[in-house]
C-alpha cells in the first residue's frame, strides 16, 4: 500500500509515492538510488546508515520512509557545497580519516549534525557524537582530528 509523501531532500523538494512498510534506508538506496547511505547491521548498532532528519542524526534503518513526510532530510550526497567538497569532506580526506570508506558517509553525517548544533565541540563531544558509528579500519583517531578541524575556527 503506497502513500504519497513530500519532503526536502538535500535541499530539493521531493514528492514521492512510497510503500508504507519500506524502511527509510531502503527507500533512499533502492527508490532514489542514493547508495551513499550504507547498511551494516539493520538494528541501529553500526551507524553506517546514519542520515540527518530535521537536523538530527538518525539511523535510517530504524525509520520508515513515510515518517519523513514533511521533514528535512540530508544524506551524504547533500554534503557538497556548490559542487565543491565541503570543509568536512576535505578534512576527512586530508587527515587520512578514510580507509575502506564504508562507515564514512554515516560517520560524516553524525559529525555534520554535531557541528550544526555545536560549532566548536571538544574531543569528548566528538567521541560521543560518533560513538554510534562503528569503524573497523581507522581506530577513529584521524576521524576525530578531521571532525575537530572541520569546525568554524
Amino acid at each position: 500500500m503506497k502513500k504519497h509523501i513530500k519532503f526536502l531532500l538535500n535541499g530539493r523538494e521531493m514528492a514521492c509515492e512510497v510503500e508504507q512498510n519500506k524502511r527509510l534506508l531502503d527507500f533512499l538506496r533502492e527508490d532514489l538510488q542514493l547508495t551513499g547511505t550504507k547498511e551494516g547491521c539493520s538494528v541501529g548498532e553500526c551507524g553506517a546508515c546514519t542520515i540527518i532528519v530535521d537536523k538530527l542524526a538518525v539511523n535510517s534503518c530504524l525509520m520508515l520512509a513515510v515518517q519523513v513526510d514533511g521533514a528535512e532530510v540530508m544524506t551524504v550526497e547533500g554534503l557538497m557545497e556548490n559542487g565543491e567538497l565541503s570543509k568536512m569532506q576535505q578534512q576527512f580526506i586530508d587527515k587520512g580519516a578514510i580507509q575502506c570508506g564504508f562507515c564514512t558517509p554515516g560517520m560524516m553525517m553524525s559529525a555534520y549534525a554535531l557541528i550544526m548544533h555545536n560549532p566548536d565541540p571538544s574531543v569528548e563531544e566528538i567521541k560521543t557524537a560518533i560513538a554510534g558509528n562503528l569503524c573497523r579500519c581507522t581506530g577513529y583517531k584521524q576521524i576525530i582530528e578531521a571532525v575537530s578541524c572541520s569546525c568554524g575556527k
Binding site: 548498532e45 560513538a131 554510534g132
Partner: peptide, 9 residues
C-alpha cells in the same frame, strides 16, 4: 542510552 542516533529517536 544507546548511541546519539538512538537517543535522537
Amino acid at each position: 542510552i544507546g548511541s546519539l542516533q538512538i537517543r535522537n529517536r
